[in-house]
Design a protein around this nucleic acid. Structure first.
Lengths: 329, 329
DNA sequence: CATCGTTGTTCCAACGATGTAAAGCCCCAA
DNA sequence: TTGGGGCTTTACATCGTTGGAACAACGATG
């Protein structure tokens, strides 16, 4: 592997001059610049990023801390973050927490200025209560507790309200919610949006129709739906706090031979690609994941460039995509 | 951020002694060791990996080059690779190629000894024909062309044969295949397995029943299925070269009001989590993804430790998981 | 012709860690 | 007392890069 020294020797100039050419410094004699460029070409020089970053005090990496890549929402998001990070010449380091506090603590502990320049966090457990991070960070989702840290996300209350209003507009009156969670900030806000929409339509709120989910996997949605269908008067619609729960719920409905949307209308949240091809396809709240990824990365970039910028709270757009699970195709 | 120098000053020893303690060098006086450990604790020292790796000539990273994280198979695999890599104190750098030759070239170009110690490649386009990599690498899947490089994967011919034999055992006689591809090594092998199974059962092979797919997304499966169902005599079963194609195919079947498996049996490949909860759930060839991830990482680790080991070709196990898309629940 | 500012180049130190060589210590045998 | 050898520590160079100061060359200016 060629180093600056090799290139310099070949071009007959000093190492620093080569460095200047590589970094686009203006004042280099055309003649020398040409010779250096030829030498760069000839040796196939690639800067040693480790050395460069050591010198510059940067690492060239950002961390993306998320529960699990096997969850489609996070996989899609991770792909978009990687793409967004490339714009700023950042590489992305993915850490999985598996949704546990221990996992989140471990991920945070392994981070540090020596490893990454900044971090994007998608906490699920308590994480933020003992929050102590040595690099600029941004939270995706919601604040679990009141900690000074930037945030990027959608208006969860408004999104949930939109979803439930859609169900109400279809004439549904017994609308259940799946996904309540003791610690998740987003869960509380989505529940709030659900209650607001019910209240606006003068529909009664019943705690029986709110089913918790400790994890947001398909199996949890299926189990929650079973408990709802075992009720004396089952719901005629269900709002799930993410698409996986909704897929699980639809699976249970199918097993019980319920027609969706005839007997039961279902709305999800996240708009996974999977939901477009399920049978029936799933109506879902669609956050603009690309916007979230870009906003988070851009925000971090600003913060790294000027560390004492004010904290930010970026709200990204969302939309409701109506599909067969609420309106028969 | 504390450096070795800070710790050394605090403990009243030389930098090297601290380095020795940190790296578990045996000959340090108990007294000094204790003082150094206290100082390490007090300063919260964490080694600067960039500097360490610069000195050691390692980067501490491996690359995982794959088409797209939004494809569930690769997302699941990536998660497992990250976990496996941690065992060897490696961090994983994910590069997306989007299945294009240009993307694969770009990913390869950005790699190099200065960035990663090794690379795991999941090529889709031609990639390997102009293959020139400066670090140890392993291919997941199949050799597109004959290039000296290690490989990890399942026996695709046997896997496809198993899948098609299952369909035959159910009494299906017009069995289609979706996913033929001009450049993909796995596609050719799966097609071979398909033909072998047909031949073994003395079923005729018909080119009409083999549908190509340029991408392996849900939409491609849906389109392929439409073309099959538009035939004068449509198939009574279809073997899809991955689960996404199968999900798309089942979607089309549903749109045409075909019963699965009654009118059409469907088998996929990859065993995505998604396929367990689809309606009907999908029978699928299940490669042991954990085994693939571990084998790939372990192989690279051996190769990095002793660079002139022989190339390896590791075969990992697979199984066929029979679900509702072939045998009604 | 001395001076000056601009442009271009080089030398040196430094980022934080580790390998090497050498020096210091201590104990024991000659 | 000397010397040898095992343990323990240190000074120094080094990995590849960049920032800063110093220096050199140059035409323009007074």
């Amino acid at each position: 592997m060629a180093t600056l020294k090799d290139v310099a020797r070949l071009a007959g100039v000093s190492v620093k001059t080569v460095s200047n050419v590589v970094n686009g410094y203006s004042f280099v004699k055309p003649d020398n610049r040409r010779r250096v460029e030829e030498a760069l070409e000839a040796t196939g020089y690639r800067p040693n990023l480790g050395a460069r970053n050591l010198r510059r005090g940067r690492t060239g990496f950002i961390a993306l801390v998320l529960p699990e890549l096997s969850i489609p929402y996070f996989a899609e998001l991770a792909g978009l973050v990687i793409t967004a990070a490339q714009e700023h010449e950042w590489n992305v380091l993915i850490e999985q927490t598996f949704g546990t506090l221990a996992g989140e603590r471990a991920a945070l502990a392994s981070l540090g200025p020596h490893l990454v320049d900044a971090a994007i966090l998608s906490p699920e457990a308590l994480l933020v209560d003992d929050f102590q991070l040595s690099v600029p960070a941004v939270l995706l989702g919601e604040h679990a507790v009141d900690v000074p840290i930037s945030r990027v996300g959608i208006d969860n209350v408004a999104a949930a309200r939109t979803a439930v209003r859609h169900l109400i507009s279809l004439g549904r009156t017994r609308i259940a919610a799946i996904g309540a969670h003791p610690h998740r900030g987003t869960a509380a806000l989505r529940l709030e949006g659900y209650r607001t929409a019910l209240a606006e339509a003068s529909l009664p709120f019943s705690g029986d129709l709110v089913v918790p989910a400790l994890n947001y996997h398909r199996a949890d949605g299926a189990a929650a739906m079973r408990s709802l269908l075992d009720m004396p008067t089952p719901p005629d619609a269900v709002f799930c706090f993410n698409d996986l729960l909704a897929i699980g719920a639809m699976r249970t409905a199918a097993e019980r031979s319920l027609r969706v949307p005839g007997d039961l209308a279902v709305v999800g949240f996240d708009n996974n690609e999977e939901s477009v091809y399920s049978s029936p396809s799933l109506t879902s709240v669609a956050p603009d994941k690309g916007a979230i990824a870009r906003a988070a990365v851009d925000l971090l970039h600003r913060r790294v460039e000027s560390p004492d910028d004010a904290l930010e709270d970026v709200e990204t757009p969302f939309s409701l995509l109506v599909r067969e699970s609420t309106v028969a195709g």
